[in-house]
Every structure is written in C-alpha cells, then in structure tokens.
C-alpha cells in the first residue's frame, strides 16, 4: 500500500510525506519540505531507519531516531510525521484500495 500527505501542520512549515508499506511495515518513506534539521545527515539517517518499522509507530520511531542522533528540527516535529503517516494509513484503509 502507498499514499501521500501534503499539509501544513499547526505552527509548522509545508510537509510532504510519501509512504509505502507492506504487511504493516514501512517499505519506503520520503519526507520533503521547507523545514530545517541540524544536522541534516542525522535527519536522513533517522528517515532511512524508518524502513522496516511498524507503520503504526512512525512518529515514535522517528522521534527516537532523531533524539539518538541529536537532531534538532525547526518548522517540523516528529509528531507531525506520525500524524501525517496515520492519516495516509487511515485514508487508505477507508478506501480499501491500493492507491
């Protein structure tokens, strides 16, 4: 299954999330937007580390991944990513189709 989210989380910048998952596990993820992350490489590592984790735990896993890599975000939070992922999963379930 896959889906996309585009939105402006409260107080945040524009967020685009593409998510693909199989059997409840993240198969691919891409986070794009005009936010800042310091250091950038830590953000990318935490993003890549989402692959293989439960699609229901994206927010928590990402928060832990950022924290363990000492990444600071501006204009985005891990909770925004979790909410965006949940909305993708929910809308795919509601439609019951592969998008």
């Amino acid at each position: 299954m896959k889906g996309s989210y585009i939105g402006k989380p409260a107080g945040g910048k524009l967020l685009r999330l593409d998510l693909e998952w199989e059997d409840g596990l993240v198969a691919s993820v891409a986070i794009r937007g005009d936010f800042f992350a310091h250091p950038e490489e830590g953000f990318e590592d935490a993003e890549a580390a989402l692959v293989g984790t439960s699609v229901d735990d994206v927010g928590e896993t990402f928060a832990a991944g950022l924290s363990s890599r000492g990444v600071t975000l501006f204009g985005l939070t891990a909770a925004d990513i979790g909410a965006a992922a949940a909305s993708i999963v929910a809308s795919s379930g509601a439609k019951g189709t592969f998008s």
Binding site: R16, A30, I31, R32, G33, F35, E40, F43
Partner: peptide
Amino acid sequence: IGYFQGVRD
C-alpha cells in the same frame, strides 16, 4: 531550493 525540498514539487 532547500536541502529537504523535492525539486519537482
């Protein structure tokens, strides 16, 4: 474009 933006976006 910013480091995290999609160029096609």
